[in-house]
């Protein structure tokens, strides 16, 4: 599967990263290379193999439902660029 420069732009947009126009072709080539490398695995019959979701052969431990975290708002907000009335302030977002 080949990645076009338009795909690179799309992915960069979703990830909110800026990529120089000149660099896009290079990324498209590199990403295509990675995909074709991965595609080699398609040659293997995996119909009998259970998909692996996690490399550790372990299962999730469950936590008792207890509220254990105290309110430390002041400490957490000390590092925030802007707060007011207990709220974190961020650049205005209008949908």
């Amino acid at each position: 599967m080949a990645i076009e420069t338009a795909d690179v732009e799309g992915i960069a947009h979703l990830a909110r990263i800026e990529i120089d126009e000149q660099a896009r072709a290079g990324y498209a080539r590199d990403l295509s290379g990675i995909l074709s490398f991965v595609e080699q695995m398609n040659a293997v019959d995996t119909s009998e193999v259970e998909p692996m979701a996690h490399p550790l052969d372990a299962t999730q431990r469950l936590r008792p439902d207890e509220a254990t975290e105290p309110d430390r708002r002041d400490r957490y907000q000390a590092g925030a660029p802007a707060v007011e009335a207990g709220l974190y302030l961020v650049p205005r977002v209008v949908e």
Binding site: G86, L87, L89, V90, P91, R92, V93
Partner: peptide
């Protein structure tokens, strides 16, 4: 989205 000096408040 009330006006916090042109910013958005997050809870």
């Amino acid at each position: 989205h009330e006006d916090f000096h042109g910013m958005t408040g997050v809870d």
